[in-house]
């Protein structure tokens, strides 16, 4: 028979996003809450001045959450449902599975992304080129985050362990680093520490495009190089080094 890769990718999207949303519409609100809560707090605490930063921050957080929720979803499907064993032993490859599941996470958070994009157009001032650069930074963040999520999920053996991973990743990558506030708010020497998080580079790039932070051309290039390198490494780990078939 002829096997269609499109169908194989679609299967993950149907199971992990579309069927779940059709059968339980309440979960549409689910992904909306976490970024909006922080967005509200930051906006009110800054008397509205940080609203543009918080909107782009919420978008970055959404990209990172796609990775952490992918890791949780896949751990659940693998360990509690034994679905991954059925997939591993089928003609679907790990790469097809990652791509399908990654898209499913985006589909799942369409309501949030749509809402944030509307806020972005109303409150955030940037050029067309700036908008495009922000999009690229978000897409890169999404890619390293789902790669990390997939990689970790293949090593989990139960759901508690999986909560452990995502409980660590989420604050380390989104709440603490300068995602929701400008990096200049962090005094030295702590600012150096924030450069340990890949999201710091993404938010430097994004914040430089909305006028809250000046990033020289050289530093702009460095941020991209670091962000892309991290993404390549994590992408390699996900495709080549994850524990698809167990040992």
């Amino acid at each position: 028979m002829k096997r269609r890769i499109g169908s194989q990718i679609m299967a993950s999207i149907l199971v992990n996003a579309i069927y779940a949303m059709i059968n339980y519409p309440i979960i549409l609100l689910n992904t909306l809450l976490a970024p909006l809560a922080i967005l509200a707090v930051v906006t009110f605490a800054s008397h509205g001045t940080l609203l543009p930063v918080a909107v782009t921050g919420a978008l970055i957080m959404n990209m990172v959450s796609s990775g952490t929720s992918m890791q949780q979803d896949l751990s659940h499907l693998k360990n509690d449902m034994r679905l991954q064993d059925m997939i591993v032993s089928s003609p679907t490859t790990s790469t097809i599975y990652i791509v399908g599941m990654a898209i499913s996470e985006i589909v799942y958070s369409i309501p949030t992304i749509a809402f944030l994009i509307v806020l972005h157009f109303i409150f955030v001032k940037t050029t067309i080129l700036g908008g495009f650069i922000i999009f690229l930074a978000l897409a890169t963040t999404f890619t390293f985050s789902v790669s990390l999520g997939f990689f970790l999920s293949t090593f989990t053996s139960d759901i508690i362990q999986s909560w452990g991973f995502s409980g660590i990743i989420s604050p380390l990558l989104t709440t603490i680093p300068p995602v929701y506030y400008p990096i200049t708010y962090i005094p030295y020497p702590y600012r150096y520490l924030s450069y340990l998080s890949p999201t710091t580079y993404a938010s430097e790039i994004v914040q430089s495009q909305i006028g809250v932070f000046h990033l020289g051309f050289q530093n702009f290039v460095i941020s991209w190089v670091v962000l892309i390198s991290i993404t390549v490494v994590l992408g390699y780990l996900a495709v080549r080094r994850s524990r698809w078939r167990e040992v």
């Binding site: 269609r4 069927y19 679905l83």
Partner: peptide
């Protein structure tokens, strides 16, 4: 998977195998 129907369950597995 508890959130699927039987038809969706079988169908998604077939799609993972590459059926349209």
């Amino acid at each position: 998977l508890p959130w699927l129907t039987p038809l969706q369950t079988v169908r998604s597995y077939l799609m993972w195998r590459g059926y349209s």
